[in-house]
Amino acid sequence: MASYDTTSSPPAAAEEPLKRSAPPPEYNGGFSPVVDVALRVLLFATTLVAIIVMVTSKQTKLIPLAPGLAIPLPAKFQHAPAFIYLVAALSVTSLYTIVTCVLSALALMTPGGCSTKLQFHFLMFDALLLGIVAAATGAAGGVAYIGLKGNSHTGWNKICNTYDSFCFHTAASVLLSLISSITLLLLVWLSISVLYKKTARR
């Protein structure tokens, strides 16, 4: 095992300064920078649409309190902390995606390709945001599920039979944020496979 390492690592260490001056043989990912930018654009689109759908979900309905007395009661996303969290997390992701999309596109245009350090930082933040968006999707999905089905054990009644359009907006937003978290997962997989191929070429 030790012998394997001793044979493989010294050339890599010796080549390090040489490679800086002559980059052509370096593997720059083939298709992957284009796929990276495309995925980031998709991520931006899904998060933005999810925010808009969630923010415009307000619905007001006449709720009968007593026979002959009905008052208009609105359902807003601000009423549940989970939905506020979803909007906040998606906003952060959206802003982050704008920045990384521009940086990724710039790296695509420069001939040398994306530097490994930049890719490394992207990877870390993508993984962190994956956690945040997945948690937000889970939170909103959990609350929306109770709203849809209710919970007889705790006496939490379902509200989706009353606020149908609000629930539809919420479900669409949760679905879109699910797609955006899957996109983030794909982005991290892509970066890891690029890094892996770079090391495999040595």
Binding site: L130, A134, A135, G142, I146
Partner: peptide, 21 residues
């Protein structure tokens, strides 16, 4: 990475329902 996504979504769901409780 899949485990991170799975665990975080479960924590989010439990946390949101727990806060309501």
């Amino acid at each position: 990475l899949v485990m991170v996504a799975l665990l975080f979504s479960a924590i989010g769901a439990t946390g949101a329902v727990g806060i309501i409780g």
